[in-house]
Design a protein around this nucleic acid. Sequence first.
DNA 1: GAATGAGGTCACTAGGTCAC
DNA 2: GTGACCTAGTGACCTCATTC
Lengths: 162, 162
Amino acid sequence: MTLVMSPDSSYGRYDAPTPTDVTSPVHREREPELHIEFDGTTVLCRVCGDKASGFHYGVHSCEGCKGFFRRSIQQKIQYRPCTKNQQCSILRINRNRCQYCRLKKCIAVGMSRDAGCMRDSLRWPAGTHTQLAQEGRLRAISVRQMGRGAHAYRRATRSYFA
Amino acid sequence: MTLVMSPDSSYGRYDAPTPTDVTSPVHREREPELHIEFDGTTVLCRVCGDKASGFHYGVHSCEGCKGFFRRSIQQKIQYRPCTKNQQCSILRINRNRCQYCRLKKCIAVGMSRDAGCMRDSLRWPAGTHTQLAQEGRLRAISVRQMGRGAHAYRRATRSYFA
DNA sequence: GAATGAGGTCACTAGGTCAC
DNA sequence: GTGACCTAGTGACCTCATTC
């Protein structure tokens, strides 16, 4: 399930990136719309469908894909080309099978070192947590749980999703 | 686009800093002129080109560069030297890549703890908002929108620029 | 009282770490 | 190499002081 959230007041700070390649099958990701995938209870990683841990490098992604992409760009790794048709499906259970296609998918969904510019804040749109919790999609998080200080907050974050 | 506004009555209290390095490409910033950069609709941060949120530490700057400079001078942080040529370009999308060059740029464009002294009032020159709004460069802001109290005003501020 | 900048706050992410 | 967890910032928003 893909939830497409249109721009509204809560996106006032969002500058729509100019689509650079409208022939790309993923050019829609670059429009000022927010695609959030749910499996009913969870915000999903745009790369592999695992539970997203946040908005990383411009995309809702899991810790695994975030770390994978980080290593890829840091070390400028050239993965050996896919031995199949370079169209491996990337799923949580098989995401480590083909690094070439995993990185390709990361890029395809819009991950980039600069795309995640903190204030572009397509990450969790304002009120997402609250709204989702109210809708029962996320475990409810009280302000107390969000807590004073980063540690308490982070501990809560890890258990956002049931 | 750089709008150079010549000194006039509203700059009467401005003391021109003495240029210290006229070979520098930024030495012009230090002349007694007010450079306001527009992208057509928006006053831009002199450091990174993001949307300026006001006149901070003597320079039109965004919230990010303002906060960055504040932390830098508060904690007297010595950033580790740039690993490249110490001439990183500082743009909105990459401003967090090199703290050394970001701080260097902040200083180069004239940010200083004292420069932003409110009574120096180089911030928004008197009438800037009104004038720009009339010229269609800024979204028009009615006095009502500026509002009663800081809250309403700030809410409006966030959407100053289309 | 309105305008507005300095400084504080804290939700949030980039990048580091290390058991696996 | 991977990814769960950690640390060090980052910046949008807030409060308060100052100026007009």
